[in-house]
Computed example of a mutant assay.
Amino acid sequence: MGRIEKFEDLEVWQLARTICKEIENLFGTTPLGKNFSLRDQMERSSGSIMDNIAEGFGRDGNREFHNFLSYSKASCSELKSQLYRALDKKLIHEEQIEHLQSIIDMEINKIGAFMFYLRKSEFKGQKFKSLKKDNKP
């Protein structure tokens, strides 16, 4: 994996942004936009996916980043559940939920793979670089 300089370069963040845009599109094109409580929950959970990726990246340590990726992954599951609620209330159609859930499932898989990579990586994060130099015998 090449060196990533900013969170915007992460594929998992880019896909999370796409999910947010897709959810926003639902608000404007379906009755879901008028169900303010469910809309608010979906707005927050979809935003949480990308925001936690960004925040974890900013922590400069793999262990903390891994934790924030876990939060993002959980927000994906939360959003999937909310989509079922919207479907059950007949605020969205079956085709819309299938499309979105396939994107969300892809994000869950990509986040999981990235978490696995971080667990196996020898590089533990930028904030540990100076500690390693200082602790050399």
Results as ranks from 00 to 15, higher is better:
K133F: 11
A54R: 09
K90T: 14
Y117D: 14
S130C: 02
E98Q: 15
D40M: 00
A16Y: 04
G61F: 01
N109G: 14
L69F: 11
D51Q: 11
I23A: 05
R59F: 10
V12H: 02
W13R: 04
K129L: 15
A113V: 03
E55Y: 01
E78M: 05
S48E: 07
S72I: 05
R39G: 01
G56V: 10
M115H: 04
K120E: 14
G112M: 04
K73D: 07
P137S: 13
T18F: 08
L87K: 15
L83F: 12
K21Q: 13
L38W: 08
E11P: 03
L100V: 08
S81M: 12
I108K: 02
Q41I: 04
F65Q: 12
Q96V: 06
S48Y: 06
A113H: 10
S72M: 05
K124I: 09
L83D: 04
Q96N: 05
E11L: 05
N67M: 09
R85W: 10
P31H: 04
I111H: 06
G2C: 02
K80W: 06
G28N: 15
D134E: 15
L15E: 08
F36H: 02
N35T: 03
R17D: 13
F65M: 13
I111Y: 04
F116V: 13
R63S: 14
Y71G: 02
P31S: 03
D105F: 06
K124V: 09
E24H: 14
R39C: 04
M115G: 00
L69R: 03
D134L: 15
I49T: 06
S81C: 11
I97P: 02
G33F: 07
E122I: 13
G61P: 01
E43K: 14
E107L: 15
R85T: 15
L79I: 06
G33L: 10
Y71S: 08
G33P: 03
F36V: 01
L131H: 07
F57N: 06
S37W: 03
W13T: 01
D9T: 06
E55D: 12
N67C: 10
F68W: 04
R44W: 03
A86H: 01
D51W: 01
L118G: 04
S81A: 14
F128D: 07
L32I: 01
P31M: 06
S37R: 07
Q101N: 15
F7R: 00
I19W: 04
F36S: 00
I104D: 09
Y84A: 07
N135V: 09
M1Q: 05
F68K: 10
E24M: 10
L100Q: 06
C20R: 15
F128N: 04
K132M: 11
L26Q: 05
H66C: 12
G2N: 08
H93A: 15
K129F: 11
R119F: 03
L83E: 00
L26S: 06
A74H: 03
S102R: 13
F36E: 02
